[in-house]
Structure formats: C-alpha cells, structure tokens
Design a protein around this nucleic acid. Structure first.
Ligand SMILES: [Mn+2]
Ligand SMILES: [Mn+2]
Ligand SMILES: [Zn+2]
Ligand SMILES: [Zn+2]
Lengths: 138, 138
DNA sequence: ATTCCTTTTGCAACAAAGTTGCATTCCGTT
DNA sequence: AACGGAATGCAACTTTGTTGCAAAAGGAAT
C-alpha cells in the first residue's frame, strides 16, 4: 500500500512528503470523490488548509486526480483511473452525484460524443448525472 | 421589451421590482450565461450583492433561469428557453464553455440518455462541453 | 389618493472559501 | 553531513456566500 502511494509520487517527479502521502491515501480509501472540505475534516490538525489547496492543485496538474464539476459550486476530486499525464487528462467517464448520501461516483460509462455547431472545437466533456445511487434508491 | 420582462414576473407571481427587472434584462441582453459576479459588475451600485443572490435563487426556484455547473467552482445562470415551472425544470440541453472568450452557450442539442448501473435513479443530467466556440476557433 | 399588509431590499455582521508572500522546514542529492 | 531547491506553515488578506432585522417598496383594497 505505502509502496503504491510512493510509486505514484515518484513516477510524477514529486517529492514524497507526509501531506501528499496522506492525501493520496484518503483518495485510495474513499469510495467516492472528495471535496477540499472533506479532506480538511479527515486530516484534522495534520496539516494546513493551504497545503491541501496546493496539493490538490499539484495532483490535478500531474494527472493524478481529476476534477468533477457540480451544480452547487463545490468541485470534487477523484483519482484518475485512466492513463492521465501532466497536462493531458483522459477521464472520459461520466459522474454520478447522489442527492441522498452525497457520494460522488466515477462510473465506467464513457462520455458520449456530442454534436456541436459548426466551428466549435471540443476540448473536454463533462457529464454529471444526479439522482439516487444504488444504495439509496431502495 | 419592458412588457416581456413584466409579463415573466407577473406570470410567476413575483412582484415587479427594480432589481428583478434589471437582472432579467441583463439575461435577455446577454448572449451567454451569467455568473453572479457578472451581474454584480454589470449593475455597479444599483443594488446590493445580497439582493442579487436572493433574486437568482428566486428565479431558479420559479423556473425562470437554470444553473450551469462549471469545473472552476463558478455556477452560471441562463434563461430557461423551455417550459420550466416552479420546481420543475426541463432544461435538457447541453452547454458549451469557451475557454478563450469565457462565453457559456446554451445549445439546442438535447442531453443524451445515459446508461447507469442497476438501481441508480436519474434526476438530472448535465452535459458541459468546453473548448473553443465558433467565434474563437478561427 | 390613502391605508394597510406583505414582500423585498439594504445594511451590518458574520462565516466560509480561496489566495498570496515569506520565513522555516523538509526532501533528495552530492 | 551538507547543500540547494521544493514544500510547508503561518499570517494576513480577498472573495464569496449567509443570516437577521429594520426600513422601504409593491400590490390590493378602500
Ligand atoms: Mn471520475
Ligand atoms: Mn442552458
Ligand atoms: Zn446515495
Ligand atoms: Zn469563444
């Protein structure tokens, strides 16, 4: 486990620090996506708020995690499953936000190709579905 | 013009106030979606920041405008073209965010039906595409 | 036009979220 | 062990969003 974490950081030319290891572990243990606020709560007094901001930013830039837009002004983050590299994300899967339990899922469904007007160039497509997840719909 | 604005408010059982008229006009004149910050800049000293928050919230509840999630933690708002009523939005079109000019477009393309795992119930689907718009891609 | 009641607004105070600069500490290498 | 660059913590600050309450405005009735 510790090896996996270590590897990810080294592979991305990032020095292995306590905060980075801890935050990466949070993502690995989490069953859904995490918001900045989630990490802040989980970490308690371990490290500074600012460090979390900077770490998340670094991870996104390196292609270790990706962002998930939500309708309520709260970006969430999740591990990139696909082979994402610095500056080149390929997280073309759809996301699901459960209105009940609040969990954000990365689903295996690929985002569909969308039809756009003449001249529009697609860089990124986000599909965010909300409703009730499997656990909450019964 | 003033009549149209007036009608929308009355139809939704909202009293016709300066701020509501002005904000509705902003949306009608805008070629794209507007963020809270945009409206604040446009209105100058006309009315209070809090009024803008409350007005946007009211308009969303009444089905006059709808929200558009973005990856950068800034919700945008646009007029509902479709027949949306209080508590029942039907804005099932996709959105496009231009990375160059910042404009957010409501496109006429309908959101696709997405395949979800067993037990997942869909309430809302947001498709947000980003890249370069027609004006910026040349 | 005046009155009356309800809704909306503005203000102030506050809370939460995010940013920046800089000194200190830590990491990786020599 | 020592060094240099990168990461962290802290403080100060800005921006964004929320809440309570008194004043003002809107709409309906007289
Ligand atoms: Mn994902
Ligand atoms: Mn729209
Ligand atoms: Zn759920
Ligand atoms: Zn553009």
């Amino acid at each position: 486990m510790a090896d996996v974490i270590n590897d990810i950081l080294k592979r991305n030319q990032l020095s292995v620090t306590d905060s980075r290891k801890k935050i990466l572990e949070f993502f690995h243990h989490a069953d859904g996506a995490l918001a900045h606020a989630d990490i802040e709560k989980m970490s308690g007094e371990s490290f500074d708020r600012v460090t979390i901001y900077r770490t998340l930013q670094t991870f996104v830039e390196k292609g270790i995690i990706h962002t998930i837009p939500t309708a309520d002004n709260s970006v969430k983050y999740a591990l990139c499953k696909d082979e994402c590299a610095a500056g080149h994300h390929h997280d073309d899967h759809i996301h699901f936000l459960c209105d009940d339990c609040g969990t954000t899922y990365c689903l295996d469904t690929h985002v569909p190709a969308v039809q756009l007007p003449q001249g529009f160039v697609v860089k990124r497509t986000d599909v965010v579905v909300s409703g009730k997840c499997g656990k909450c719909s019964n």
